[in-house]
Design a protein around this nucleic acid. Sequence first.
DNA 1: TTGAAAGCGATACCAA
DNA 2: TTGGTATCGCTTTCAA
Lengths: 335, 335
Amino acid sequence: MKPTIYDVAREAGVSIATVSKILNGKGKISPSTRRRVLEAIERLGYQPNLLASALTGKRTQTLALLVPDVANPFFAEVARSVEDRGRALGFTVILCSTDNQDDRLARYLAVLKQKRVDGLIIGTGVEDLRLLAELKEEGLPFTLIARDLPSLPVTSVRVDDFVGGYLAAQHLVELGHRKMAVLTESLKVMSSRERVRGFRQALEEAGVPFPEEAVYTCAARVDDGRRKALAVLAAADPPTAIFAGNDLIAIGVLQAAKETGMAVPDDLSVVGFDNTVLATICDPPLTTVAQPIEEMGKQVVDWLVRELNGEADVKQRVILRPELIVRASTAPPRR
Amino acid sequence: MKPTIYDVAREAGVSIATVSKILNGKGKISPSTRRRVLEAIERLGYQPNLLASALTGKRTQTLALLVPDVANPFFAEVARSVEDRGRALGFTVILCSTDNQDDRLARYLAVLKQKRVDGLIIGTGVEDLRLLAELKEEGLPFTLIARDLPSLPVTSVRVDDFVGGYLAAQHLVELGHRKMAVLTESLKVMSSRERVRGFRQALEEAGVPFPEEAVYTCAARVDDGRRKALAVLAAADPPTAIFAGNDLIAIGVLQAAKETGMAVPDDLSVVGFDNTVLATICDPPLTTVAQPIEEMGKQVVDWLVRELNGEADVKQRVILRPELIVRASTAPPRR
DNA sequence: TTGAAAGCGATACCAA
DNA sequence: TTGGTATCGCTTTCAA
């Protein structure tokens, strides 16, 4: 059997209260008994049972990260950065992929509460805001990453999507594009809306027309981006440039262009979003709007932990600046 | 305050023992009291505290997945499949990236024990086998994914790396290659050794020379694969084909070839391993040895859970068959 | 069929 | 400085 605090106490000839104090660095303990207890702990190879300690009201030192899908490279990188920062601060992280489905999210939230995780980091889409409102009522702290819900008093860390869209458009306009399309995931997602809004804004400022119909939506997957792009490119007088809502979709566009016999960037320029590893690997390498993923992961965790510690009373809205990374998928239009 | 089992008992006018029995489907309960209790639970929105229940000896319903790095697409996909199967069986999974460092692994193992996780799935490299031997002694069940430690009595789920290497070589030989190199991560990793061994075996059978020096090692990262490939390709009389230990390295090779002005597949054929999403995205699409990641994830979880349930007394060595996926990065040599 | 009470392994208050 | 003990929320005998 694993040794318990009782075993240590007996071995050291003290009470469990004393052992507990030493373990937690509380109260006054004479050097000699401290030494005896420490030796006993060493000898027995004692490791406190975190469940028992959490039951008395202490933290579980566990966070949960909710994302649509860890297999998506963007969220995989988010997961890595959150895990790293969590570990540095003494937390372990539970991984939850929801596929953006509210029922899945709800199931996860239920068990996470039962497991008494200390806090949540939410990067997944949420349709039914009541799910989150409930969390607030129950006092389970959470922060948002790469998402924002303006209607909720919650701290969020994200990139300025509006600026991201703006940068993409600006770049394309400077290259001389006049007929562009946007292929994004559902506009129900606020970040998507913002990217499109920023894109539109830059075009307006440049006096370039951008009709409502030039915005297409698809799922955030390569194959769906490809499917939709195929349709877009098949139209009479297709756009000379496409701004994709993320790298996955952008790569689908790249594939569609290839299939259609259009050369990128000569016949079609493509701009992605996220700057995941994929953007460096595809052909041609993708011009894309970079999110500072590592920094974002670090900051969400930091803010969440501050909240746990009661150090952060006010909700933050941390908005990092995205950066346009110009690679080889964009060029002046040939048509 | 969150309602406890006492609140439910009071609300229903029964004892906590009765509530507990109903919750766990034990003992005989009259329909009428069951109904009363269920109603009370409903009314109060009661959710059992899993910490408390685990403290009494029940499971934590938590598994841990240890991998080198979730940001690596292969392991991200593994994580997704493990998470999915875990969820289906009622487990939550803690994510642990170790960067293949034993001290990091050791730290994680310590806290995972303290948190009383029910079992571990290990996909990370382990230098010091005593770490795992200790787990066995302490009775913490674990299984291996995409790894194997023949010296340990443990169940593992992996692909037949030898066959994978063999398939890669066979393909290249059939295309007519006679001078090939292998670029793999550390040969300390058994799967790497096996892939190389299979590769060599196929060449021997075909009577194609394959000197010891044609095996190069690098870290499992695109940039390091690129760096090393640059050196390999710069040699006088470079190989006409390179078998990379995984897709990441293969993509580094692709990049190096591009930089060197070698066309793939005409001047250089490249074969990868894993068949991650990257293989479909790079240019040209990568011929690679596919691992059935989803199936592997499902099986490791299943075997681990069987072990938890005491249903699996014997250790399994599940070896799935890899499959060669021919894409556009391989062709007959031009030289 | 139901309930009283003894754990499970820690924390923390209050005495000594 | 140290220790006794109630407590956290649940499971599980064992009686009733």
